[in-house]
Structure formats: structure tokens, C-alpha cells
């Protein structure tokens, strides 16, 4: 059964892509792209730190949009279909990841091309990409967790959590900092933290993509305890 389901994934790409709330993602991703494009297209001279700051805001925009991409208005009605939730989410991930990757590549390309005085070549693109991936991962993880409980909108929980996380990260004391300027000596160490965050986010997403069986066990347990009461 599982083998059959996994083979279904590529066939699900098209219908899943059509069912996804794209315009939310496009609005957020479009804003992220605009945030890096405006200074790139104008004569504003920005330092490496400013550009990394803009890339971070763009990454937050993208993550906000990604958080909504697991939403499915038909979630309640398709809970009973034979294709299990992990396969449905795998199909969504198969659409989301390339789309987000293409968008992020575009954001990076615009930023590098628009940077003045050869700063583009000095930008730590790898580190910023890890940050962006971790933020996107957190958005997906929170959305998946929310959708386990209520099949309404994952992004509804993901976006406040993401904004709160980013704001809290900016306020952290130096020794725990997540956002550091590109020339900071702690850059490598903070990005280990980001990588850990990404791994945790992926693990939580994988766990949350399992069909929640909690309710049934809870009901069964309650029944058992009722029976127990009666017996005693």
C-alpha cells in the first residue's frame, strides 16, 4: 500500500499545485523580491550589512508565504481518501521546494547584480540561504502542526510565530545571537545554530505530516476508562 502511495506522489504534483493558495505566496514572495529590487534598481549605495539585512527581510517574506502553502480548503473532505497525509504533504513539498528555491535564487541574483562597488561578490550568500531555509522550514513545521489539530489554515499560526521568532531573535543577547552582521567573528557559529533550527524544523514537519491518530486513541482510552469505572 505504501509503495503504491509513494508512486502516486509525482502524479499528484499537478492537482496539488492547482489546489494550493498561490496568491498568498506570490504576494509575500513578490514583496520580498520588491524589497531587494528597489534598492538594486536605484542609485542607493548599500553596505554588505544593509544588503544582508534586506535579504533577511526578503527571507521572512518568503517564509510567511510558504506557511500558507499547506492550506487546503478541501482538507476535511479528503481526510478519508486512500492517499495518506504524508504522501499528500510530500507532493506539496515537491511543489513548494522548487518554487521557493527559484524565488530565492532570483532574490539573490537581483541583490548581487544590484550591489554597488563589488560588494555583491563579498556577500555571504550560503549563510543567508541557511537562514532563509530555516525560516521557511519553521513556517512549514508550524503550519503542519496547526493543520494536525484544525484543518483551517496553517499560515494563520505560522505567520505570527515566525514574526515573533524573528523579533525575539533580534533581541537576543550577543552570546545567543542569531542575526549577526556579515563581518562578525561569530558568523560561522550563529549559522550552526541556524542549521540546527533547520534540522529541527524538518524533523517537526516530518512528524506533523503523520495522520493524527491522537483523537481516536483518546476516545478509546476514555472508553476503556469508562468500562473500567463500570467494572469497579
Amino acid at each position: 500500500m505504501r509503495g503504491v502511495s509513494v508512486r502516486v506522489v509525482p502524479r499528484l504534483f499537478r492537482p496539488v499545485a492547482r489546489a494550493m493558495p498561490w496568491w498568498t505566496f506570490l504576494a509575500a514572495a513578490g514583496l520580498g523580491l520588491a524589497i531587494v529590487t528597489v534598492p538594486a534598481a536605484t542609485a542607493v549605495t548599500l553596505t554588505g550589512e544593509d544588503l544582508v539585512g534586506l535579504l533577511r527581510v526578503a527571507a521572512v517574506c518568503g517564509a510567511l508565504g510558504v506557511g500558507f502553502l499547506l492550506d487546503d480548503p478541501a482538507a476535511r473532505s479528503i481526510a478519508t481518501v486512500p492517499t495518506p497525509r504524508p504522501v499528500r504533504y510530500a507532493a506539496r513539498a515537491g511543489v513548494i521546494l522548487p518554487a521557493a528555491a527559484v524565488w530565492w535564487a532570483l532574490v539573490l541574483a537581483v541583490t548581487v547584480a544590484g550591489a554597488e562597488d563589488g560588494i555583491g561578490a563579498t556577500l555571504p550568500l550560503g549563510g543567508v540561504t541557511v537562514e532563509a531555509a530555516a525560516l521557511g522550514g519553521v513556517a512549514l513545521a508550524v503550519a503542519a502542526v496547526r493543520l494536525r489539530g484544525r484543518p483551517d489554515s496553517g499560515g494563520l499560526l505560522a505567520f505570527p510565530v515566525l514574526l515573533g521568532l524573528v523579533m525575539a531573535a533580534r533581541l537576543l543577547p550577543d552570546r545567543m545571537a542569531l542575526f549577526v552582521p556579515p563581518d562578525d567573528t561569530e558568523w560561522a557559529r550563529t549559522h550552526e545554530r541556524w542549521a540546527v533550527l533547520l534540522v529541527v524544523a524538518v524533523a517537526v514537519s516530518t512528524w506533523a505530516s503523520q495522520e493524527p491518530a491522537r483523537r481516536w486513541t483518546a476516545v478509546a482510552r476514555r472508553r476503556r476508562s469508562l468500562v473500567g469505572h463500570r467494572r469497579s
Binding site: 498568498t24 509575500a28 542607493v44 527581510v57 517574506c61 510567511l64 508565504g65 494563520l156
Partner: peptide
């Protein structure tokens, strides 16, 4: 759409910081 409010907040943050440059 709920996405618009957080996006407006991000724009405000970026423009406020840009005003300092």
C-alpha cells in the same frame, strides 16, 4: 487575506530603517 497585515509590518520596518540610511 490575513497575509497582508504582516507584510505591511515588514514594509514599515524596512522603510523606517531606510529612513536612517
Amino acid at each position: 487575506a490575513v497575509i497582508v497585515a504582516p507584510l505591511l509590518l515588514l514594509v514599515l520596518a524596512v522603510v523606517t530603517v531606510a529612513g536612517l540610511l
